[in-house]
């Protein structure tokens, strides 16, 4: 018995032939590409952070920018970044969720709604500068308020609205119809089903969408340059909606291209590090509710 099993190939031995070779080639290829991409991203991060990160100081994060001398900070720009991000999300999340839920749950199935859907899809890939021009048309030309935080935030919200709408609609549609039926059959109203089943189940997708637009809003420059300007009010904690609202991303562009301060290079490096750090942080922070939600619903 024993020597037979040693000499004869096992019935469950390795599969041979072309399909097995292709399978291994493909697996190897996917691993190779995956590792290359990861290395590339890590390398990029290292390159960007390595120059700025060691030189970061609290003074830089907090300090006021300077036009001529060395040693200016990014305080107001950083503050504006968060302020504009917060305002734009406060506008776009409720509207985007509402529109997405409408399209998924209430919209009648006709040509008109089909057209709306195509428009939303189209708008979500329109270059951001178009939304900047739109912001100028409204805030600078129509309301004559000039370049303001408010104008920047609203324009950013418009930029993100189509993406949020689409993501919400798709996540809600992806909820299995059996779950909806279960809820309705227990005597729930449409609103109760949306609140207690559809949104919690779709939350993963919706939060991913919010992460996406939050990161984009934080790093957006074209819209802000056109609608909120390339200057700040020059003081910290300025909550005035009508102050000029240069954000960190714009500041980065500004010191790289226009500024005459001698340490522009260094400011740009440090600002880059800060920008990347906060974009990563935003992604982590928005995942917390997901994680909590997952703990409640999974095993």
């Amino acid at each position: 018995m024993t020597d037979r099993s040693a000499s004869a190939p096992s019935a469950f031995g390795k599969r041979s032939g072309a399909s097995a070779i292709y399978n291994r080639l493909f697996t190897g290829f996917v691993w190779f590409v995956g590792i290359c991409v990861i290395l590339f991203i890590l390398g990029l991060l290292f390159l960007l952070l390595q120059k700025g990160l060691p030189k970061l100081t609290w003074d830089f994060l907090y300090g006021l920018p300077s036009e001529i001398e060395e040693g200016g900070g990014i305080g107001p720009a950083l503050f504006n970044s968060f302020y504009v991000l917060f305002l734009s999300l406060a506008i776009s999340i409720p509207l985007g969720l509402a529109a997405g839920i409408y399209l998924a749950e209430f919209a009648p199935d006709n040509k008109w709604i089909g057209l709306v859907r195509i428009c939303v899809e189209g708008l979500s890939s329109v270059p951001s500068i178009i939304f900047g021009l739109f912001g100028i048309a409204i805030f600078v030309e129509m309301f004559q308020v000039g370049l303001t935080i408010l104008g920047g935030a609203v324009s950013l919200a418009f930029l993100n609205l189509p993406v949020l709408t689409r993501v919400t609609e798709e996540s809600i549609r992806a909820v299995p119809v059996e779950m909806k039926n279960a809820s309705f059959a227990l005597g729930s109203t449409h609103l109760q089903t949306i609140r207690r089943v559809l949104i919690p189940v779709a939350l993963n997708g919706i939060i991913t969408g919010i992460c996406l637009v939050a990161g984009r809003a934080f790093g957006e420059s074209a819209v802000i340059i056109l609608t909120a300007g390339v200057t700040t009010s020059g003081s910290m904690w300025d909550f005035n909606l009508f102050s000029p609202g240069e954000t960190l991303a714009v500041h980065l562009w500004y010191v790289q291209s226009e500024a005459i301060v001698p340490d522009a290079q260094e400011i740009a490096q440090k600002a880059t590090a800060v920008l990347i750090f906060f974009v990563l942080l935003i992604n982590v922070v928005f995942r917390v509710p997901l994680w909590l939600n997952g703990r409640k619903t999974k095993l």
Binding site: P176, E178, N181, A182, A185, L186, G187, V201, K296, T297
Partner: peptide, 17 residues
Amino acid sequence: RKKVGMVFQQPNPFPKS
């Protein structure tokens, strides 16, 4: 529907406890 309950062909629990 509160008075007339329904059980479906496929079990359809919510992803909750």
